[in-house]
Design a protein around this nucleic acid. Structure first.
Lengths: 236, 236
DNA sequence: ACCTGAACACCGTTCAAGT
DNA sequence: ACCTGAACACCGTTCAAGT
C-alpha cells in the first residue's frame, strides 16, 4: 500500500491502486492467508491468483510450480518457530522435547502447513535454521554426529506426520462432544471384533482409544524418541 | 473370468462378456492395479471407472467416496504383510523391528499405498490384524498397556511417513547416479550456507547427506523407536 | 521481463433419467 | 437396486500474444 503522493487519484474508481507488481513475496503472502484461513485445499494457483486479482498463469513468472509454492509456505511457517539458541547440556532432553512441542504448535497454528510439508525435506533457509538449532541441542547431549544427522530427519518427519493426521481429520475443529462421540464409537467397534482373532485389541480397547485429543499421544511419541536417542549417547 | 459354459458366445462381438456386474471387490481390484502400475495419482474415480468400462458415477453405488476407496486400498495392502503370529518375549525387540521392516517392504512393493494411508488411522479388518500382531509383540516385551496402545499408533505413523517421503520424491525409481547427484548437490548446498549462522549444518554436511538411499535412515529410526519403547518396560 | 486470456487435460461428486 | 450421461464446480500447467 505504498502510494506515490503525486499519483493522480481517479475519482471514478476509488481506492484502487493501479495494480502493484506481482512478487514472490506477495504470492506467498496471499497463499499463506488462504492456507491459515481456509486450509490447504484452498491454496490453489487459481485461488491465489484470484486474491491477487490476476490469472493463474501470471504466478508462473515468480514461482516454478505448486510444489515450490508449498515449500515457500513451509519455510514461511518455520520462521514462527522459537527454538532455544543456547543449548544446555544439562537438560538437552527437555530442550529437545520443547523444540518438538514448538514445531507442533506452529503447525497447529497454521492449519494446512503440515499438508504442504509432508513428504518434502525442508530445505528453505528458515527451515534449515530450525535444523541447526536442533542439531545444537543434540550435540550438547553428546549424540554422535551420524545419529544427530539422522535424528534431524526423524524429528520433523514425526511432528509433521502427527500434525498432518490432525489436519486431515479436521481434529482442530472438533468440539469435546465430537471427540467423545468419536472415541466411544471407535471403542464399541474394537469391542465388537471377533474375539478369537482380536483378543488383545478387544482387551485394550480402552487404552487404544484414550488420548484421542492428541496431546497425550504426542507427549508419548516425543518421550519415546528422546529416550531412544538418549540410548545412543556416546559413552565417554 | 468365470464363464458359464452354456453361455452363448456371440460370433460378432468376440470374447466380450456382457458386462460383469460392478462390485466393491472389482473396483478395489482395478484401483489396486492402477496404484501399483502407475502410482497414486493414477487412482482417480474416473480412471478406475474407465478400466471397468463404465462412468465414474457408477462407482458411487459401491464406494462412498474417494477417501473410502483409499482406505480399502490400504486394507488390501495390509493383507500382504507377514507378521509373526508367535511373539517371543526373549526377542521382542528384534521381532518389532522385523515387523516394521515388513510394513515398509509392503509399502514399497505397492507404490502409492503410503500416499493413500498417510493421515488416516487404519481401521480396516486386515490392517487391524496387523495392529493385533504388533500389540502381541509389545505385550510379550512387557510394555504397559497404555504405552503399547500409543505405540501401535506411533509405529505405522512412522513407517508410513518414511514410505510416503520415498514415493513423493520418486526415490524408488532412482538410479545410483541419481542418488549420487542428489547427495553431492545437497552437500554442496549445505556447505555453501553462511558459516556464522549454520556452523553445525556445515560441519555435519557429510553426515546429513549420508544414507540417502533410505535403508540406513530407516534402520536408525526403528532402532530409536525400539530403544525408546524398551525404556518403558515395566520394572518387575 | 512480465503479464494475460484462452485452452488443454484433467479432477470428485451430484442428479435426473433410465432399467 | 443398480447403472448411466451429462453437468457442476473445480484443478495445474502451457502457450501464443501482448506490453
Amino acid at each position: 500500500m505504498t502510494h506515490s503522493p503525486w499519483q493522480p487519484i481517479s475519482p471514478a474508481k476509488p481506492a484502487r491502486t493501479p495494480k502493484e507488481p506481482l512478487t514472490r513475496d506477495r504470492i506467498v503472502d496471499a497463499a499463506m492467508r488462504l492456507l491459515v484461513d481456509q486450509g490447504y485445499d484452498a491454496v490453489s494457483m487459481r485461488k491465489v491468483a484470484q486474491v491477487l486479482d490476476t490469472g493463474p498463469a501470471s504466478l508462473y513468472a515468480h514461482v516454478a510450480n505448486k510444489k515450490e509454492l508449498d515449500q515457500l509456505l513451509v519455510d514461511r511457517a518455520a520462521e514462527e518457530m522459537r527454538l532455544p539458541e543456547q543449548p544446555d547440556p544439562e537438560r538437552w532432553q527437555e530442550q529437545l522435547k520443547d523444540a518438538m512441542r514448538e514445531m507442533l504448535r506452529v503447525m497447529r497454528a497454521n492449519p494446512g502447513v503440515a499438508r504442504a510439508a509432508i513428504g518434502q525435506v525442508p530445505l528453505g533457509e528458515r527451515a534449515l535454521l530450525s535444523t541447526e538449532r536442533i542439531l545444537a541441542i543434540l550435540k550438547a547431549g553428546n549424540i554422535p554426529d551420524q545419529a544427530a544427522a539422522w535424528a534431524v530427519d526423524l524429528i520433523p518427519l514425526y511432528v509433521t506426520a502427527v500434525a498432518f493426521e490432525e489436519t486431515v481429520q479436521g481434529a482442530w475443529a472438533w468440539t469435546p462432544e465430537d471427540v467423545e462421540g468419536f472415541v466411544t464409537g471407535l471403542r464399541t467397534y474394537f469391542e465388537s471384533l471377533p474375539a478369537d482373532r482380536f483378543p488383545i485389541t478387544i482387551a485394550l480397547a480402552g487404552s487404544l482409544t484414550s488420548g484421542a485429543s492428541g496431546d497425550e499421544r504426542f507427549e508419548f511419541g516425543i518421550t519415546v524418541i528422546t529416550a531412544g536417542l538418549a540410548a545412543l549417547v556416546q559413552k565417554t
